[in-house]
């Protein structure tokens, strides 16, 4: 038997065992009901901790996101933008005075109908069954078609080697290499071991709620049922899965 076939069979057996045992590790892959992962950001709670960067720092530290001083080559997964740019793009007049100039979190929207995965020529980015828009930087050829397709500016391209710009790289997560695209992955590496995304965990105000929209009693479901929420640029039909609770 060829080595690759032997390994293949062994892997297949592993997968079968894992699925049968309902392994706690493979929650995304091991069958079960389909999930629709989403995030809700309570804008008011977030504003209460004015100037807070806990979520941004937690994310960028956990994922070795480089701090590149040149804004043209910046890489970012989650960051803050003025309201006028992130949500009230064409409607600054609707913003209460208190919100003008205030900042709101932006990140990959993990769209239900993502244009970025549609255009990717290699399947380096794709939507998983649980709704996470995943990235495989090993396969990315760096054509930046996904960057052009994303209506939210959520994708970053590595114009230079990012490693020198990661102050304290953690070995728990890879850095990226020059010439590939990266973005927020809803912390799929943490979801896989049953943890919440790093930003949600880090938020001191409890402003971020993460969960399964299809699960009836889930916290996010309840929050969205109770409060009014908006999404970024809904007219484009991308159906973002990051909700801004007003």
């Amino acid at each position: 038997m060829s080595t690759s076939r032997r390994v293949f069979l062994r892997l297949a057996a592993t997968a079968a065992t894992a699925a049968a045992a309902g392994s706690a590790l493979g929650c995304a892959a091991s069958g079960g009901a389909r999930r629709r992962l989403a995030m809700a950001i309570d804008v008011r709670k977030c504003l209460d901790v004015h100037g807070c960067r806990a979520c941004v720092d937690a994310c960028h530290e956990a994922h070795n996101v480089p701090a590149i001083p040149d804004r043209a080559h910046e890489v970012k997964w989650v960051w803050k933008e003025p309201f006028e740019r992130a949500l009230a793009v064409r409607e600054p007049a609707t913003l209460p005075a208190a919100l003008r100039g205030s900042e709101v979190l932006v990140l990959c929207n993990h769209c239900d109908n993502p244009p970025c995965t549609r255009v990717c020529p290699t399947g380096a980015t794709w939507k998983r069954d649980d709704g996470v828009v995943a990235m495989d930087e090993h396969r990315c050829i760096g054509c930046r078609y996904c960057v052009a397709a994303c209506p939210y500016g959520s994708r970053s391209f590595n114009f230079v080697d990012p490693r020198p710009f990661v102050a304290h790289p953690t070995s728990d997560y890879p850095t990226r290499t020059k010439g590939v695209v990266e973005k927020c992955t809803f912390c799929e590496e943490r979801l896989a071991v049953g943890r919440l995304p790093a930003c949600v965990d880090a938020c001191p105000a409890g402003a971020m709620v993460f969960g399964d929209l299809d699960e009836r009693g889930s916290e996010i479901r309840k929050l969205l049922n109770e409060r009014y929420s908006v999404r970024r640029r809904p007219e484009l039909g991308t159906r973002p899965q990051v909700f801004y609770v007003i």
Partner: peptide
Amino acid sequence: ASHMKLLVEWRDRVVRDGVRAYTDR
């Protein structure tokens, strides 16, 4: 001889299929 093949298979299983556990022989 083939650790690189195994690593590539591991990579694809983790990154693309979301499976992280491996059972050896």
